[in-house]
Design a protein around this nucleic acid. Sequence first.
DNA 1: AAAAAAC
Length: 485
Amino acid sequence: MVTSWEQLELRSELIGQLKDFEITEPTTVQQEAIPAIASGRDLYARSQTGTGKTLAYLLPLLNRMDAAVPDIQAVVLAPTQELAMQIVRVAERYAEACGLRVQQLIGGAALKRQVEKLKLKPHLIVGTPGRINELVGQRKLKLHNARTIVIDEADQMFELGSTKEVETVISALGPDRQIAFFSATLPEEMERLAGRWMKEPVRIDVQPEHRVAETISHYYIFSEGRDKFETAKKLLHAFAPSSALLFMNDTDQIANWEAKLSFEGFTVESLYGDADKLKRSQTLERFRSGRCQLLLATDVAARGIDIEHLPLVLNIDAPQDPDRYVHRAGRTGRMGREGTVFTIVTFRDSYLAEKLSKRLGIEIKERVLFGGKILAREELKRGTRNSSSPRSAGTGRTPATRGDKDVRSGKGRSGDAGKGASSGLTGAPSSPAGRKELPPGHGREAVRKLSPAKAKAEKEKERKNKGAPKWLKAKRENGSEDQQK
DNA sequence: AAAAAAC
């Protein structure tokens, strides 16, 4: 049994950094992937969200690099700019200790400056496929001496849209290249899809029987009206998380929600692909540091993003496929910490919870909102008959898990559990003093005053009755295993 | 159907 960094034969500089960051022992995926990458063989590595996949590939890559060779020795590809930046940040901590240079290559940033910086001869390149592909195409980036390419979130990278670019980047490496795929979700078809790039790959599959970390508690909540905002608002007041990540399936409602949540007294910002590049990274930074409590995001934030102390993920829209649920949920409950996921469903997609539960082998429990509390349905019945029922009362701030583990007992932000937590939402949202004055054109007004184009899009959307995600509709029509009896 | 990723 490998249990120490020393036994993984890492150089002392790396071990020194690990100890400095109090990362005392390798996780399972690290124990398995580090020797596999060191062996030079191709690799498929599947391991749950928040189990340390980033270090599982960065450490062996840096471990065998030669600082004296001024050339790119490895490439890491990530699906979003934010994730690439996060990987760079981690890589730099370890690379610097070894005298190695890391360069980030992502879109949106000045191309010229990136090209200039390449002349400093980085040893490790981390970036998004679009920009790296572009630079390779312009012959400004030469990867023929790079030995290894890591495709992080590989299943997403091989989805329609990025495949070609990823393949071009792989081809830019020499023929002796080593390819490693990492993700929490690596479906079997991946091997057929991308298998032609692999030579007798090593396969690592950590806890294949549990696709989602067991420290995450899952709930769904029924939204009675078509407007999910009331439900989300009540839930956020009742749960009062120190911070929460809110997912929507598309961008068109994000601005409205941001204004309305802000009007409710929350500090909220939004993250989506079309947003200004600078705004994107600043927003994420403010959320990470706790200066902003709520982050409204599209799936741009679904994968890989590591936020310390994120107690709650709220799916305002049900994710479009089970794997996306896995990744969104995986923003919380990382590295053994506890986390909670709530999904708002409408009458149209209320069956989703059961489907997701079945597919993912998890239990998604129903919760209802009543009297500012989050209750199980049984408690609601008891509570209405006897409002003084002590069990139904709960604390009003926990998701009423009763016999379950207290989902909020984990390591929240400092003062998280305290009543008057300064960074928490307690009191503030409902008190008029806590409400912000809205600039004209925002808040409730903004809800009604849609631009003609937007209003049209809204109507179109309602008309389409898009309740259930397509993957489920298709399945039902096909009469496959998901056929409803 | 949408989001992301390039200019």
